[in-house]
Design a protein around this nucleic acid. Structure first.
Length: 552
RNA sequence: GCGCCUGUAGCUCAGUCGGAUAGAGCAGGAGCCUUCUAAGCUCUUGGUCGGGGGUUCGAAUCCCUCCAGGCGCACCA
């Protein structure tokens, strides 16, 4: 019996009590009844607080209402005991057989187990990283690479139609500075003060000159463009390679230039003019974002006739909506949180609901310590910690998992030594090890010729088995919650719980027959449970983009 | 000055439709391998949930206020 089924059963019991005239609910029976796993085992397998929630509406004493529901619940198939406790909690105990059926469900659903449908029908666009193509991805991008990718996977698992998007800022003054910096290096000159000082610029210059020997002979203005474009292409390819290595995938790489070249900016301005939020003042064209909570109005077209970056942001949002996305998610770093107000205002000015059509989660900064020292980037000194260097130090799995295991809105410090060590106090390895251990049991079973056979769920009546089954049953709800709250870290925390629960089961319950023993129904049932546990961990790790090793 | 985020055990942090005695790991202490991975498990010490007020059957959670720390407030990109 899954929590979902039990919740439905409780709701049905409530409805039956209403029909029988034992309870009166002026607002009707609620659609959903919360059934949760109590922290304390003495409170049964599941508990519900419906009686307390509805007591006031029903004009009844919470405990009396609970008693009334308990009497009916006891008759439900698979329920073995119902107690009324405290101010009116219903503590429910489920039979081993009803609970054990879950092992079959999980194994049969396999990779599908855990998928939910809470977001079915929602078209989501999730944009993250969106770095300038003027250099390699660095430390500042790493958190969203991991969390954004995991979030996209979780949203997909919850049934949403997800598009992952990377916005390429390939237009504007920064690009020209980038081109000028490469050109300066190609001629052995100093990079301009406001240019790019990283050592990669020199390497780029060398590679480009080698590839296009005539480039340094071009007139200065043409040469700058040639360097800029060649540098752009190489850096974009480099970023894509870095992300590929980090297992972060995008569906759409959206170039800012195409917004301008395709007339999308003019189009967006027309749309917004039509909504009445555009005005002219001081020779510039503005959008009245203060109508919607922004702290100041924003310029769209400068006095010199050029479009601002904000105009492109506006066009980009309008474009996303016209491409059919219901919700546009922008993952921004804390250093960009000043953009939240104006982005929300864009949505509102476009006639949308800023509380529904746009979401802007803010990720706080990450510090990474290596051998006690903070990996720090300094643009001025030209020292830079690239994504690749961090990956080299910590490994993709450890890095992705560790970044995903904390809520993105809390500041984070990771120690490379801490997240890469192979000890149980490292959550990555604790979870991966559990998966390897499970895989090992399944391998050994095959070697011994023990087949899972038919499941007799009533064999799974050990305390540790019951707790493990209960934990596995939570997976779909955890996925749904993680998706709805945009909090993939819940998946990691959940898996740590499952891994611990499994290790404790393993310690107390022998799965395979020993020596010359014949396999019994208990062995077979435990194999089902082991298989189901392995499925849940594999699916969960998959949601974080972390490997589920079969051997360690 | 205004805005966003954070404040929970010695340390790193979980904890959202408000629920039962506030949790986990580490660190400290004591144990468990003749058979499936000891990269594991068991027991134990440890709290004014930053302070104060409010809402109610019930608050770490919701509201107000104060304190401390981080970040941000361009006709830059």
């Amino acid at each position: 019996m899954t929590p979902e089924q039990l919740s439905t059963a409780v709701r049905d019991v409530l409805a039956a009590a209403v029909d029988a005239g034992e309870v009166s609910l002026p607002d009707g029976v609620p659609d959903r009844v919360t059934v949760e796993r109590p922290r304390n085992r003495e409170h049964g397998d599941y508990a519900t607080n419906v009686a307390m929630q509805l007591a006031k509406k029903a004009g009844a004493n919470p405990r009396a209402l609970a008693e009334l529901l308990a009497a009916r619940l006891r008759a439900v198939d698979g329920v073995t005991a119902v107690d009324v406790a405290g101010p009116g909690f219903l503590n429910i105990t489920v039979s081993a057989a009803a609970q054990g059926e879950l092992a079959r469900t999980v194994v049969e659903q396999g990779a599908e187990y855990g998928r939910a449908d809470v977001l079915t029908g929602t078209r989501l666009n999730i944009e993250f990283i969106s770095a300038n193509p003027t250099g390699p991805l660095h430390l500042g991008h790493v958190r969203w690479a991991a969390v954004g990718d995991a979030m996209a996977r979780v949203l997909d698992a919850a049934g949403a139609d997800v598009t992952r998007e990377f916005y390429i800022n390939d237009r504007g003054a920064q690009m020209d500075k980038f081109g000028a910096s490469i050109m300066a290096r190609a001629h052995g000159r100093d990079v301009p003060d406001d240019g790019y000082h990283g050592s990669y610029v020199g390497e780029l210059a060398r590679a480009i000159v080698e590839d296009q020997p005539g480039i340094t002979e071009l007139p200065e203005d043409e040469q700058l463009v040639a360097f800029r474009e060649a540098g752009y292409q190489r850096q974009l390819a480099e970023q894509q390679r870095q992300l590929d290595e980090f297992r972060t995938r995008f569906d759409v790489w959206y170039s800012e230039r195409t917004l301008h070249d395709g007339g999308r900016v003019e189009h967006a301005l027309d749309v917004l003019r039509g909504k009445g939020h555009v005005f002219e003042a001081d020779g510039a064209v503005w959008m009245r974002t203060t109508d919607f909570g922004d702290d100041k109005d924003r310029v769209l077209v400068r006095t010199d006739g050029g479009y601002t970056y904000f105009a492109a942001d506006t066009a980009y949002y309008v474009d996303k909506r016209e491409r059919g996305f219901d919700v546009c998610i922008y993952l921004l770093g804390a250093d960009h949180h000043g953009y939240v107000g104006r982005l929300r205002a864009i949505a509102a000015c476009a006639g949308d609901d800023a509380d529904r059509n746009i979401e802007i989660p803010i990720g706080q900064m990450v510090k990474i310590l290596d051998r006690g020292e903070e990996l720090k980037l300094s643009k001025r000194a030209g020292t830079m910690i690239t994504l690749g260097q961090v990956v080299d130090a910590a490994g993709v799995d450890a890095l992705r998992y560790s970044l995903c295991r904390y809520p993105a809105d809390s500041p984070l410090t990771l120690d490379v030594a801490q997240i890469t060590k192979h000890t149980p106090d490292n959550p990555v390895f604790y979870v991966q090890y559990a998966h390897a251990r499970l895989s090992s049991i399944l391998r050994n079973a095959a070697d011994l010729g023990v087949d899972r056979g038919e499941l007799d769920p009533s064999m799974l009546n050990h305390e540790r088995e019951s707790v493990l089954l209960g934990a596995l049953a939570e997976f779909p709800r955890v996925v749904a919650t993680a998706a709805e709250l945009r909090e993939p870290h819940r998946i990691a925390r959940y898996m740590e719980d499952v891994a611990g629960t499994f290790h404790r089961f393993y310690d107390d319950c022998r799965v395979l027959p020993m020596g010359d023993e014949d396999a019994t129904d208990v062995h077979r049932a435990r194999l089902w449970l082991v298989d189901a546990t392995r499925v849940v961990l594999a699916n969960g790790l998959g949601l974080l983009g972390v490997a589920a090793p079969e051997r360690m």
